[in-house]
Design a binder for these strands. Structure first.
Lengths: 190, 190
DNA sequence: ATTGATCTACCTACTAGTAGGAAGACAAAA
DNA sequence: TTTTGTCTTCCTACTAGTAGGTAGATCAAT
């Protein structure tokens, strides 16, 4: 076996969350897609809240690892931002993951089980902090010209990324993501 | 009677959509909030899809009227953008309408009844077109310095606004909206 | 012999939606 | 003026289907 049932369940659940959010899928949907009975999913994840907690934990952990990997493999801050944006551009263009799980769930914040909401918030904080650190490094190196503090610029950039995902989806135009986000990177350059 | 039952239903449904999206509320929720039986809601809106269609139609119509009013009452393009952003800033700060209905629904695009999805898309197009027209007017008057075409700059600004709403919600920080969106207006000024 | 994973079968609560009737408003007809 | 009919709104009572979740059995692997 190369992929456990739990992982299959999480993979399917994640794609369902990306498509329709927390209230947009059911155990029956997962059951059908994975090919096991509903009750068997409860064996792996007793409640939907626990399933979502594990799912978001896994997602945010992977995101942290991904950002760390960019930091390790790409030398300059500009390249790091480009790598981050290129990752999402690819995910959206090939429809493999056309939306951020946490951005999706952020819209439903008020209806989420508290532990899940906390994980979503933590992901936003973590992503903003990473962007801020990259922006600061770039500014210190004289590569970026920042109008505001790195933290404020990071919040602005993160919002643009999530908003670009939303626009691409609303207008059914995957290419729009890059069109919106590309110039944001350009204008940072000193 | 100063507000019809239909309007009450739409008002409640709208606040529920803003809180949790299309799949985040039920006729039972509306019933409880309005104080009439479930079946009576079906009298006014036979199906949920029809309810949502009327709701989004009303929302987008009001939005168009609001943008038109800004154009009529505020003379300069910079002031028009400021008025638009100030409107949302107020809505978010006083929590009267902490999210755009269509931005909320855009996340669930794939699960929406087709007629509703079309209305959501139309609202995005309409808002982007208004922003583009204001940006163009400002650029022609020498008030704004645009790096890209007005249409591209409009897409960027719209994404920032929606992303700022999402960040404010995810981080539980209403003030974040203005912090993100304010500098975007600043940097346009020639 | 026990454990983990799966199954069938089921539960309760809730989903959108329907059938049919009661109460009032209003206007036309007696 | 009263009566009749129609329209609107809301109701109780219901349906079929789905939600998340549980109980208990089977079976293969340890």
């Amino acid at each position: 076996m190369e992929q456990t049932t739990s992982e299959k369940i999480l993979d399917i659940a994640q794609s369902l969350v990306i498509a329709g959010g927390y209230n947009g899928f059911s155990y029956a949907d997962i059951s059908e897609a994975v090919g096991i009975r509903k009750a068997s999913i409860h064996h792996h994840f007793p409640t939907k809240a626990e399933l979502m907690q594990v799912l978001v934990e896994r997602y945010t952990q992977r995101a942290r690892a991904g950002l760390k990997a960019i930091g390790a493999h790409v030398p300059d801050p500009a390249g790091q931002l480009r790598a981050y944006l290129a990752y999402w551009e690819k995910c959206i263009l090939d429809a493999s993951q056309p939306f951020c799980v946490c951005a999706m769930l952020a819209g439903e914040m008020q209806m989420l089980p508290a532990p899940v909401a906390l994980l979503v918030q933590a992901h936003f904080e973590n992503l903003a902090a990473w962007l801020a650190s990259v922006l600061k490094a770039g500014a210190d190196a004289g590569l970026f010209r920042l109008d505001k503090t790195p933290e404020e610029e990071a919040d602005m950039l993160m919002a643009c990324v999530h908003g670009a995902m939303l626009s691409a989806r609303a207008l059914g135009n995957p290419g729009l993501f890059a069109a919106i986000v590309g110039p944001q990177l350009e204008r940072l350059k000193a």
